[in-house]
Write a protein that binds this DNA or RNA. Structure first.
Lengths: 349, 349
DNA sequence: GTGAAAGCGCTAACAA
DNA sequence: TTGTTAGCGCTTTCAC
């Protein structure tokens, strides 16, 4: 920096101000400095800047990494967030910090490495929130904790998303619709998406004067198979499945095929919060509620950066998923012979 | 730190030495200092340490993020790497830097934020390597560039992996085996895994006196369907498919089902470099070559840290995938009526 | 085994 | 509009 200043025949502070833009610099001077920087291939030292300014210009994206991996949906969060950070001159670092290893996070935060953080896969009770708040690190959630007072978040509008999915199916004439959620344990733990979609499903069905049928499923193909078996036991006359569980969906499809139920002729299937890539993996391709992936990431980072600039108001926003009709939904079959039509109301002839 | 020193009645340098372990400290003094640090809930400032020591204690995991997302395999790399870094007192930050945005990387590197880097999804010609080398940032690859002279890497032993897969199938009596690779464009671009497995397949088949049949496939379910169609056209009597393409595999399975070929009764399927999670998604579950995911990440970071400590030798290592037999492979059907047995050698009676 | 003090490369008052 | 300079919080010689 010294060298740049000398070459441009200005003081080091002028070079610094050109860099930070913290005070007006005449065009002539700025050009000289810029030329010198280019000439010397100068790059400011991040540590020194961080120490002097007390801002690292790094924001963390805290992203639990379980063995399941990242779906296309989560990846979209990341790319959206990274783009937004980069555009604002910040570095976005991903940190595989889950709700479990809060200690790791506490250290990271106390060491003043992070100017702020975006939390993914937020739990109802999420230790990471308190850890960051105690360390004085501004944060924005993707998802929601139980109590969001004073917290900024961006989340999927599950109510609206479920409603749209149900409307789509009801519009096709379906009346016996099963909702396959996450596992019972997950729901009991109060996992937001599971709880909210459950409640929304009950409400949406009620609006159509229909009875909700709901089945939990473990996050695996086997879980999906078991869930469908349970669903058929409970509602042999079901004509549509709405599934929240991206891991179980393939099991559901497999079990439907095994039992000779054709999709969408016999049973229509809608997958929630699913990326187009995953939807295309199935055959027929899945009608799905596509999550606003990169938009969520971008908005979260933009809100965070606004906080860093000192804007004190909290940002709370919900975005719906978009219905994308593919091959897995069709008109409800009218009368069909089933092994046991009981429980579906008066038998259809 | 000043406060810690005063409370412990030692000098700041002593506190620093307790922190870094750069010189012997008597047990009594160390205890006093540690007690003071705990008392004051002291956390050293990462920026200041980085500036003074010229080492950030951050290593980057450079991980291209395309829209497909991260598979379970890549996730295992990450968790393995993060664990290894954390154990050594380093922070592992993931950076979504692909072979494309080298400029971003160049900036990151020149700003001295990274003590070192691990590169994932390395291309044959990967601009990231030169960018890091020019910036003087030590690096380790997961995968390999075309010329690995002087570079450290950890990669999958594709030769051995393909050999084991072929041996498994031949051991079951299969002789007409089709290899479904990545797309022709990917192979032409010299993508390592595609090229290496192709060559290994030819060699392994030759060892058994068999003729290799190979079909490229786009990375999608549709690509898999097309590939299987092409394969059946070329070798109507095929009894086994070995697939490298995790995205195409579901299309292959779907097309087999559509055509009425049962797995594994009519056709056996082996999936390469596949995580157990994905293998379990299919029905029947896929016999697969499971990649040594977390081990790759761990070994890469350990090698990198050794470089940071000044060890100058390059680390080059190959790890094979492990064969995990599930439901998608079985004995080759002997004689079966096919539409066209021609091209399979003398007809079997 | 410990302490004193000179930076690390920048930013941001303060001064002009 | 620009220059001067005192730190930012630590590490690491150099001295004892």
């Amino acid at each position: 920096m010294h060298d740049v200043a000398r070459l441009a025949r200005v003081s080091v502070s002028t070079v610094s101000y050109v860099l930070t833009g913290a005070r007006p610099i005449s065009q002539a001077t700025r050009d000289k400095v810029l030329a010198a920087m280019a000439e010397l291939d100068y790059q400011p030292n991040a540590m020194a800047r961080g120490l002097a300014s007390r801002r690292s210009r790094i924001v963390g994206l805290l992203m639990p990494m379980d063995e399941r991996g990242l779906g296309a949906t989560e990846t979209a969060f990341v790319t959206g967030a990274a783009a937004a950070a980069s555009a604002a001159g910040y570095h976005l670092v991903l940190s595989p910090v889950g709700a479990g290893d809060v200690d790791d996070l506490r250290r990271l935060a106390s060491q003043r490495m992070l100017d702020g953080a975006v939390l993914m896969e937020v739990q109802v009770e999420d230790g990471r929130v308190a850890a960051l708040q105690e360390a004085g690190v501004p944060l924005v959630l993707i998802g929601r904790t139980g109590d969001t007072t004073g917290l900024s978040y961006v989340d999927i509008d599950f109510e609206q998303t479920v409603r749209e999915a149900v409307d789509h199916l009801v519009g096709l004439g379906h009346r016996r619709i099963v909702y396959v959620n996450h596992s019972a344990a997950t729901i009991a733990a109060g996992y937001g998406p599971a709880v909210r979609t459950r409640d929304a499903f009950v409400a949406a069905m009620a609006d159509h004067g229909l009875a909700p049928i709901m089945i939990p499923a473990e996050d695996s193909a086997a879980g999906g198979r078991a869930a469908l078996t349970a669903a058929l036991a409970q509602a042999p006359d079901l004509t549509a499945v709405l599934a929240m569980n991206e891991n179980a969906i393939f099991g559901i499809l497999g079990e439907l095929a095994t039992r000779g139920h054709a999709v969408p002729r016999d049973v229509s299937v809608v997958s929630m919060v699913t990326s187009p890539q995953v939807a295309e993996l199935a055959h027929p391709a899945l009608t799905a509620m596509t999550s606003p992936g990169s938009a969520l990431g971008r908005i979260a980072v933009e809100a965070l950066l606004r906080h860093l600039e000192g804007a004190g108001d909290t940002h709370q926003q919900l975005l719906p998923c978009a219905l994308e009709v593919r091959g897995s939904t069709g008109p409800a079959a009218g009368a069909r012979d089933r092994t046991d039509p009981a429980g579906s109301g008066p038998p259809v002839t």
